[in-house]
Nucleic acid binder design. Structure first.
Lengths: 183, 183
DNA sequence: TATGCTATGTTTAGACCTAAACATTTAGAG
DNA sequence: CTCTAAATGTTTAGGTCTAAACATAGCATA
């Protein structure tokens, strides 16, 4: 039975998580479905935000990975420097990915790289003026756009939901398998 | 100023979203930060779940994209068939990605592909026995694992949070830029 | 001072994804 | 019957990420 297009993309969320859980219970009685209604909307929301940001940034000529890197450095405050290890920790991506991000940003003239002078082998990444300009030019647009996406939440609701998500994040963070050993 | 490693990966969430918002307000007064405490934990949770699932599946010799494909077909019920277009809609990935996923799964013998006989140009994807076996063998493990990750939520809290997320998803889905025209 | 462990980064192989360019088929409008 | 627009898929170019293999630099200790 070929299912027809009952859930156009433009409408509300295609296949609510509740339907997915129902389908599993119908098809495979006993399937443990408790997590579905949490994990599925979470993933879809993350994807909506990520896709929307990627498209906005594409118009501005930046990619999300680079913006993430520059943002962390900019937020660290003057002199806008962090070690690659610290970048990995703050962005939740592997050391290898940071190495590649920094290499790309360095070629683009947005950051510089140098070894630390404090006796460790650490590599210190610094925002250049061009990198600083780029982040100043884009961050408000990105955050304004995202604020508009969550505009349906009243400030109180937003605060409450934020607290719940942070609490869940802390808990899942304790239980989940972490990044590979090389990090 | 090179910041030292104050937030080890193993501890609770590195840099709570509230600190990120504070940092922006400190560094750039007036930055619109309302969305940060929603979007940041959302992304981090999605990444924790995705990383955890990827690692579990790696042990089982499957990749997440393939599992997603097989799951949608399996949940559709006998005869486990859907058009590629429908797969794209249900999985929220572009038509091009579906084409590649199906090609990989076809090579692996997990699905078959044929053109529909109903006069349209649609391509119908069908689960093979091997694909069916694979999904039966893995879905409980994945869902059991994920249920354990959200075990801190009491059933009532889980229900409430699920409803809030679904509501937010519906709303953001209405406001966000959607998939490109080719879909 | 050898030796090896630990901490840090970089590189590479393999997967995936999106966007855009193509290709093909159906269905309509004349 | 012909030409065009719409609907569907596939392919390709470019970019990202993870995991694992490497490569090195400190450090501790015998």
């Amino acid at each position: 039975m070929v299912v027809k297009d009952e859930y156009p993309f433009d409408g509300p969320s295609p296949y609510p998580a509740a339907e997915i859980a129902d389908a599993w219970r119908r098809e495979r009685p006993g399937t443990p479905t408790e997590s579905i209604e949490i994990v599925t909307p979470l993933w879809r929301l993350a994807k909506l935000f990520a896709d929307d940001r990627r498209r906005l940034l594409a118009d501005l000529g930046v990619d999300p990975a680079t913006l993430d890197l520059l943002s962390v450095l900019r937020r660290a405050g003057s002199p806008y420097e962090l070690t690659t290890r610290e970048l990995s920790r703050r962005t939740l991506v592997t050391a290898g990915a940071i190495s590649q991000r920094v290499a790309r940003a360095e070629v683009a003239g947005l950051v510089t790289r140098r070894t630390a002078d404090d006796g460790t082998r650490a590599v210190v990444v610094t925002l250049t003026d061009a990198g600083h300009d780029l982040i100043e030019r884009t961050v408000d647009q990105v955050l304004t756009r995202e604020a508009s996406l969550v505009a349906s939440l009243a400030p109180d609701d937003r605060q409450r939901l934020a607290a719940q998500l942070q609490e869940l994040l802390d808990d899942v963070g304790r239980r989940a398998r972490k990044l590979p050993p090389d990090v």
